[in-house]
Amino acid sequence: MRPSAFACCIWLAVGAFSPLARGQAVAIQTEGLQWLQRIADAAELLSYSGIFVYRSGNRSETSRIVHQAGQGRQNEKLEVLDGSPREVIRHDDEVSCYLPENRLVIIEQRSVRRNFPGLLANGLGNLHDHYLIRTGGTERVAGFDCQTIRLEPRDGWRYGHRFWVDPASGLLLKAEIVDANGGVLESMAFTDLHIGAPIPPEALKPRYEAAAREKWRIRRAKLSDLREDAPWVFRSELPGFRKLTALRRAFDNEGKEAAMLHWVFSDGLAAFSVFISPLTAPQEQGEESFRTMGALNIAKRVLGGYQIVVMGDLPPDAIRHFAAGIGMRGK
């Protein structure tokens, strides 16, 4: 990628800093990283319950979350309160998703992505290479006086982020993804929150457990690590993003095994996924499509009898760039 004029200006400005100014800049970055580590830790180590609202464009969704932590264990229940009913139950690394309208339960043994109010706990130390991290003033969210944090991307391969954090607990109360002009693409924010209160066992039980046990389909994913000689290669890398996982996901689909390959890449904050699966119906070689939903961008293409899907909260050019570089080894 050619260096942009903006990047050159940043380089010149940094080169012109005095030692004192450079020291102050490092201190600001370090403080920001410490806040981010507190966010990642708090979401895993604290017990809390509350209601939060997700907004993306004209779409919004309200959810209730109950999270219990203690003795090295984690239990969590996430329930969508409007629109199509969904419920996600997590016991440590086992995640069960209840879909009442489909009379279906999907069970996976491990979950890669940490959702709101969590952050990925690995790779935070390198964020300053790709984001300018700033701490701001205090603003109220859900009755809490929160510390504000801004992450401004140093290149065009990622979006900016804004966080509102409870200083007492370190828990993330509000998060926004913003574009290059500061426009909000996606937001999540608590409207009601209780931190540290005891979580009664019934608050964590699945609402649909009894019905699911008797009448629903239960689809359990069989996950296995991909070998290094998997036939797919990624030729168009994104700076700062590294591979977190490479898995084969297999489901039993009415007596037949349906499988897909799944990779997750992250820079420590933003992440995107690659899914590759055999076509179930004939499509034209090279057929492509692209879709944007708020901060989420999705690229699809057909190659050699397979469908390739790349999706994540990255700018459209980043998703297109990476998707275009996926190919078969030796071809």
Rank of each mutant, 00 (worst) to 15 (best):
I107P: 08
Q147Y: 04
S111K: 08
L33W: 02
A7I: 05
S63C: 13
I89L: 13
A168C: 03
L279V: 13
L119G: 13
A258M: 02
G182Y: 01
E108N: 12
V165W: 06
P239W: 00
L279S: 13
G156K: 03
L12K: 14
H91D: 08
T135L: 05
G196D: 01
R249L: 08
S96L: 03
W11Q: 14
L99I: 15
G118E: 01
L261R: 15
Q307G: 12
D92I: 05
G325Y: 05
F144P: 12
I326Q: 08
I65C: 09
R235S: 15
E44C: 11
E237Y: 05
H91N: 13
E284M: 07
A250G: 13
R134T: 11
M1D: 10
P278M: 02
I199N: 12
V310D: 08
F234I: 08
K77E: 07
S187K: 01
F265P: 11
G170S: 05
R220W: 06
P200E: 04
G156Q: 00
A250I: 02
G196V: 07
Q109L: 09
G125N: 06
P206C: 06
E214G: 00
L104I: 09
P201L: 04
G72Q: 01
Y98G: 15
I218Y: 03
E254D: 15
S4H: 06
K300D: 01
H128V: 12
G304C: 03
R291A: 13
R219N: 14
